[in-house]
Design a protein around this nucleic acid. Structure first.
Lengths: 249, 249
DNA sequence: CGTCCGATTTGATCCATATCAAGTGTGTAC
DNA sequence: GTACACACTTGATATGGATCAAATCGGACG
């Protein structure tokens, strides 16, 4: 009986990228309709993880990258000393594990932030397929370079911006990502804890908390726990660009 | 007469990855001896840039990625406000421009830190070739994921480590990269200015300068301008790991 | 429904590093 | 060789956010 659920998940229901609502965000977006079958042939669909469960672990052999189907994931790297650095948050349609493609082992650990389902792309088959479909290969390059750029942006945020600017930038990033998924850009629930935000942005939890209340007092946002409402997006944009604006004078 | 020099550089001397001393670092390392010709067919070799000249500019159409043949390069992103963030330093055998592959435009600007020669790989031809040579494709994925990991490491350094730790880490990174190129790991000349180091590590120039003198007073390094001698590599490693060690207690 | 533990908030204090200010090389161009 | 601009160093002071401490919230579970 305890086995029943995983068994059902692994049932021979074939993946159907054709019908997936995320096909305009995920890998299928780079593939011609009639080549989509070839992607469906290699994808393993439907694995579900509960909050806190690991999708994969740093230093274990690299097998697959994963697309988020529903829910959300955080990735982090952990030093020899056990210190953690959150390197990213991933929402439906986004690919996790690109930082390890072509490596022997996973370079980070991926953890479900809530109940999350993923599609798995075994790397050997994916590399084989990208060799045959130039558009898919191009798209993989694009996704990976995007990941590099994101990380550079993060480095910039960390090295040049204040706590308020960093948090405003994160809220705006989440907002636009929710919007692209046809969810409200102003009214959403943060998938991650204050702790994760702090770690990701290189701040102390206390600072994150203080900035949230400061934004709230200024009427820019409304926050109760993880529920957030962005009351003044332009105000947020002004905060996140405060640094830039000063330099324009 | 003024035209003579660039003309000579563009002469029909064919690229010879076969004989390049960097073939164990650069792209050729992923290619079978008998496929190397195909790489030579697409590479444009021998362009030379003087100190301060741009190899490519952010926001211009993406055409090629570049391998450093000699000299060194820094890449940086520039915000609308003109604020700069140095994103990397590149030494011979390393590939520049991976953060834009698959994009329409360059995501950063690459600048020669000294007189520098590069090999150019036009992206359309490179993508075509990686589609035919699985090992090369795999290597490209590897290089790009490595770049993501580097950037994550940098983010970690920026968000968790002190000025001393950051600078120790940079010196050690340079040291091991010089060593892989068969140059002295303890006695080298920094290709970049204090300013670039400061910007890269998210510090003020003054702080970088102070840490250098502090290290010198402690007998860990000897520095005169850009000439650096690492007197106590283990000492440096201890400094760069100080943070980790504290957490192990 | 109460209990308990982790998540979050709030307050007080401290410190690493930025910033401001000034002086000292250093290399390049005339 | 001299001068100028720029790179680097050094010192004094200011501050944003970390850290320490404690209270409050919230949700899972018996």
């Amino acid at each position: 009986m305890a086995q029943a659920i995983p068994f059902r998940q692994a049932s021979p229901l074939k993946a159907s990228c054709h019908q997936c609502s995320l096909s305009n965000l995920c890998l299928p977006l780079a593939i011609e309709e009639n080549d989509l079958d070839r992607l469906e042939d290699i994808v393993q669909q439907g694995r579900i993880f509960n909050r806190g469960e690991h999708i994969f672990d740093q230093s274990t052999p690299y097998r697959s990258c994963f697309a988020v189907k529903s829910g959300s994931i955080k990735t982090s790297i952990i030093t020899e000393s056990g210190e953690e650095q959150v390197t990213g948050f991933f929402m439906p349609g986004e690919l996790v594990g690109l930082d390890s493609i072509g490596s022997e082992h996973y370079a980070c650990t991926a953890k479900a932030l809530e109940r999350t389902s993923v599609c798995e792309f075994p790397i050997d088959k994916l590399e084989e397929l990208t060799g045959k479909l130039p558009e898919l290969q191009h798209h993989m390059y694009h996704l990976m370079s995007q990941e590099i750029q994101n990380s550079h942006q993060l480095a910039m945020l960390l090295s040049k911006n204040t706590a308020e600017e960093r948090i405003a930038a994160l809220l705006l990033s989440l907002s636009s990502r929710f919007q692209r998924r046809r969810m409200s850009p102003t009214n959403f629930s943060l998938p991650m804890a204050r702790n994760d935000i702090a770690n990701f942005l290189g701040l102390a939890v206390e600072t994150v908390s203080r900035v949230f209340t400061r934004f709230q007092n200024q009427g820019i946002i409304k926050a109760r726990g993880r529920e957030v409402e962005l009351l003044d997006i332009e105000g947020l944009q002004m905060v996140s660009r405060e640094f830039s604006r000063q330099c324009n004078n």
